[in-house]
Structures are given as structure tokens and as C-alpha cells.
Design a protein around this nucleic acid. Structure first.
Lengths: 145, 145
DNA sequence: TATTGTTATACTCTATAACTATA
DNA sequence: TATAGTTATAGAGTATAACAATA
């Protein structure tokens, strides 16, 4: 097997491949009573902002376009994980809010994801965990540039 | 802002969020004359295997189902990046092969992705690069468990 | 006139089930 | 009967363009 062309300076390419495959792997773990990665991300962002925010703000944080938020919220509202109300002073805007059920499912999904990592990845060492913990803010730095 | 619930042991969840956002960020860089992340991954895998392999093998390596490979190959063949021929001894099988154009575009995409990382992420230090370089095989270990 | 959110539409990526051809 | 690949179909996630409501 050959390594990829320009392998010597291939950090970004390798990172691109590794992240795609990790998300595919996580999707294969998906069960209908859990959150998809995209739902997990949206609810996490809402939680981080105190559990309530406008669609526009949410779209900016998630780095998606507003219609994508509209669509995602439909599914989450149908599942009673999110509610909406009109903004008190600007009636163009909405306030999206995590329900208690949304909060609970977010916590359960967080736990389940970590449990999966613990039980499925037998030979992940403490050093590996430390490396990943260090890498995550670097990836986030790349994302936000 | 609050951190996510169960934040203390939230490595897998944080990794899930970071990878989703990195792929979104990379998608926003996409231009019609380049490769999507999924195409990049498929061509990289073919390259690593010497530039030729069967659809079934490719599906296994990419961890997708065979119909997904069929569909992806249509686009790549239309773009003359991949050709196909019948397996010499088993006429049920195909051999998919990178074309010279496919090789060139893969190399260009690799270069472009690294160039993007270099030019857009101004404050990525050598230590950051070292951390990411160490993290990539760990992520791949997780993927293949 | 500018901003917020939605609707309409379309494309990519992915899966499962059913099918065809070959072994 | 088993295996390789394709077709048919469906669903999630995403975008752009056009629209309605409100500021």
C-alpha cells in the first residue's frame, strides 16, 4: 500500500479522512431512540447557551444556513425535545428552548457516547485520551478560523 | 455559557462535535472543480491500494454499503477520475481504477487541503500540528474497533 | 428598506430490500 | 446455493432562491 500523494505535509488531508470515518462510525451506532450527531450538536449548542436561543444565532453557532435550522427544529419539536415561543420584544424572532426531555436526552446521549468509547475501544490508553483532549480545542480553533 | 452535561468525562461527545464541525467547515470550502470530502476519501483509499480495487473491497475499506460505492463511482466515472473493467478471472467482479486525471486531482486536492490549513489557520503552532499528527492514528484506532 | 424566519426546491450521502448475473 | 454488483426507493442533512411578516 502506498501512502497518499504529498504525504510528507499531509496533515489536513489525514485529518479530513479521519473525521469523515469517525462520523460514519458514530452513525453506524445510531439507534432510533437516541440523537443523531447533528441533533446532538444542535442540542449541545442550545445547552451551552443556557438552553434558549434564536434560530439565527443557532445557525451561526452551528455554521449552517437558517433553513437548515428550520428543518432540524421540526424534527426536534415533533420529538418534544425543543419548544418555541415568540421573542418578547421583536415579533420577527423566535426563542427556541430545550424542554426537560431535551435536556435529559442530551445528557443520556453524552453518557452513551462516552460509554461507547470506553467499552468499544479497548486499547485506548490514558495517553491517547490525553492526546485527544488536547486535540479537540485545536480542531475547534481550525473550525472557527 | 454552560459546558455540556457530564462534562467531566465528555471526551467522546466533544470529539463528536468537533469532527462534525470540521467536516462542515471543509464542506464550505468546496468548489465544483475540487473533490468533496467523500470523493477525496474514496480516491485516497484507491490510491493507498495501488490505484485499483473491487467495489466490495472499497466498500469495506470505506465502511459503507455496496450501493453507496456504486453511486459514488457513477460520479467519479462521469468526471473521468475512475475507470472500470471486468475482473480477469471472475466475471462477477469489477476492477475500479484511478485514471491519470484521478491521480492528479487527488494530489491537487491533498495539496489544496493542506494549503487551506496553512493559510487560513494563522495561529496553528508546531505543537498544535504535532498534537494533531499524534491524534489522527488514535482516531483511526477508534474507527476500526 | 433591512432583518427574521419559512417555504420550495434540489443535491449529496447514505441505507435496506429486491433484483441480475456469475460462480 | 452463494457471491458481486446494481436498481429502486427512502431518509437525513445541506444549500440557494424566493417569499411573508415585522422592524
Amino acid at each position: 500500500m502506498r501512502s497518499a500523494p504529498e504525504a510528507s505535509s499531509n496533515l489536513a488531508g489525514q485529518l479530513r479522512l479521519a473525521t469523515l470515518r469517525l462520523l460514519r462510525r458514530l452513525r453506524s451506532e445510531y439507534r432510533p431512540d437516541t440523537l443523531s450527531t447533528v441533533q446532538f450538536s444542535v442540542l449541545s449548542t442550545m445547552y451551552r447557551h443556557g438552553g434558549a436561543m434564536t434560530p439565527r444565532r443557532l445557525a451561526a453557532c452551528e455554521q449552517v444556513q437558517p433553513p437548515t435550522v428550520t428543518r432540524l427544529m421540526k424534527g426536534l419539536q415533533d420529538a418534544d425535545l425543543v419548544t418555541r415561543r415568540i421573542h418578547p420584544t421583536d415579533r420577527r424572532q423566535l426563542i427556541l428552548e430545550l424542554t426537560p426531555a431535551g435536556n435529559e436526552l442530551l445528557a443520556a446521549a453524552t453518557k452513551a457516547t462516552d460509554h461507547w468509547l470506553t467499552t468499544h475501544v479497548a486499547d485506548l490508553t490514558d495517553a491517547d485520551r490525553a492526546t485527544l483532549t488536547t486535540a479537540i480545542p485545536i480542531i475547534n480553533k481550525i473550525v472557527n478560523e
